[in-house]
Design a protein around this nucleic acid. Structure first.
Lengths: 207, 207, 207, 207
DNA sequence: AATGAATGAGGCTTCATTCAT
DNA sequence: CATGAATGAAGCCTCATTCAT
């Protein structure tokens, strides 16, 4: 490899960051290579020194997304309780970019997956890994085992991810509203589900 | 003239059907007007006799989607029980087109909403209407009132829709698998949620 | 031929009148066949029953122009004095259409003559005929013979026509101003030239 | 790289020269961007690096025309006598291009001015400036003051310009004839007018 | 390593023309 | 006679990609 900050890696990062912004703003195919180069403050030709073509940029961004999700999963795994792990996972969409940037990007990523098999494989890989991770998390969790509700850990994980993705999908309709407000509202609903799934009936209404 | 439908309406439908297929296959912007005309078996120019431009075709498709959802909501409203209404809603994605066509299209529609304000308004309109309809359905339903789980009808509706959308988003990753199989698996998980939300604990396991 | 008002002739007239308006408004090539049909209140296809194609319409309009000029020349010839004849000629641009319509059309006609040889022939024919007519008019006129200014009748005619055309060319820059005002101003200048050319110095100031 | 001019300016010039030729040959709207690129020996896309769109090319050409006229006016102003100044102005149409190219272009420019307000403004600007310049020239000229013929300097200028434009308009009908021959004939007529306007009768025949 | 001029295929759209009704 | 739906070539413009500097 190379040390942490040598030019090649830096350049790649710089380009990918710019690409991410452009893709979120205009979509994979509406964003032009020129848009990306302008956003990155470099020339168009330079992009081609680090990426074979536009598709390679898209793939690289998708890869980056995959890694982000894996890191997230790792952090979730280290949370003391299942509910805390879920909160970590749910807050995924907040890095250096605003949540809507991530949301717009992810929705476009799924849309692209519907056409581009390479992207589809990659997204499937991400979701499968995440799903497996959360399924394990649930299987190992005492709260889950107790509440279980007649559902398998796998089914519980599916419910949870569907909720996550469904909320993310709605984000793009509220591009103008303050991110925190959106997230808070969504978190409230998500917590309702988690409580429902993972609280023992013996505890009665938990509030 | 013609028997059932006047030609203009027929043509519009024919074009929209072709556009739907192309949009699902390649996305709004990757699908060319030529693709659509070829799929419809007509010439490119003819499309412009029925639609001002490509954007108008996209808008018309989005409108069609809106109406489909509204009809669906109407049918759901007439179901005898809440759970049956939810089943109706969940089965949305099956008309003349295969479910994946609808899914791919809807995901792209949301992606587009993230950029095109006109599309965003339309999609927001659809989701708002649907949400309101289901919220009312829940508010009027005895099962819901009983189980309620400390959630407002509105929150319950949000949960349900998030699940719906989340599942739909995943559809695009399974473009190759038989639709029924996908739907069945998803339905199972969805029923789990509905049971959880709307069954009195006194009744025990319902399914 | 046919009687004065049989449909074919009427239709042709109707189409040509509409074409004239469209050509003046948008130019020969910017005006579409659809524009013309709409202006005439008929269908596009019908135009093709009366004209082989768009070029034929342009040619027919040019022909019409030629006839209009010839009639004008005829009227000018019957004027009692040369100066009156010139006034008739100069007022050419006023039929059922506003003068600017004619001006815009004529300028476009000359522009088209620069490319389309058939139109060039036709326009040349018009100008040649008109020139010959006016040259004769001058040659026969006592005023002219007296003043003559060392110019041949032919040269005098050239001067007069250049003035006419030059003024007409400027009309298109004043599309918004009241036609009478423009014409009056131009007429004043034209009269100055005519007086200069055709008044004996012995007569002193004539105007 | 280049010796005298930086490449961007060269390219713009190259494109404008090619556009001028194409516009004169086929008219503004009949000349395609492909025609221009072929004439310039470059690709279509390259034109768009130097001009926003086709209209911008037309505007640039019109601007160029404006500057050419202004330079001409400057040269005319420096002529020792009024008659010599007029000769300079009249010979306008001869630069690097053949006179007919200029004539065809100017006639088309006026035709376009009849429809496109932006072009109309520009052409009006040119004619107004030129007219003002010549009016001043006349007002300051002793020959004019003497002969005057009861006309104001402004009216005299109008006469002169109408003659110029009228002759230019006729140029397009003689696209095939040798330019010098045309010019000579026209010059002879023009001189007749000038002599008439600006020669004291006491001097008798001047030419 | 970096630039950005240059290419040309391909997309959207218009429009003259035809033809079934 | 009249309509207007239908065709498809052609025009304007964009953009991924290459390459000389």
């Amino acid at each position: 490899m190379s040390s942490r900050l040598d030019p090649p890696t830096d350049r790649r990062e710089q380009i990918l960051r710019a690409a991410m912004i452009c893709f979120a703003r205009r979509g994979f195919h509406q964003a032009s290579m020129h848009d990306i180069s302008a956003e990155a403050g470099i020339s168009v030709g330079l992009i081609y020194r680090y990426f074979e073509n536009k598709d390679a940029v898209i793939s690289a961004i998708a890869d980056q997304h995959k890694q982000r999700v894996q890191e997230l999963l790792e952090r979730a795994r280290q949370a003391p309780t299942l509910l805390e792990a879920l909160e970590v996972l749910f807050t995924e969409h907040c890095c250096d970019n605003t949540p809507q940037v991530i949301s717009a990007f992810v929705v476009d990523l799924f849309a692209e997956a519907g056409r581009n098999p390479r992207v589809a494989d990659l997204v499937r890989d991400v979701t499968t890994t995440a799903m497996k991770g959360v399924t394990e998390l649930i299987a190992k969790s005492p709260e889950a085992l107790a509440g279980m509700q007649n559902m398998s850990p796998r089914e519980l994980a599916e419910l949870i991810f569907a909720l996550n993705d469904g909320m993310l999908m709605r984000d793009v309709l509220a591009m103008h509203r303050p991110p925190e407000q959106i997230r808070e509202r969504q978190l409230k609903v998500a917590r309702n589900l988690w409580r429902l799934l993972f609280s023992h009936s013996s505890e009665g209404a938990i509030a």
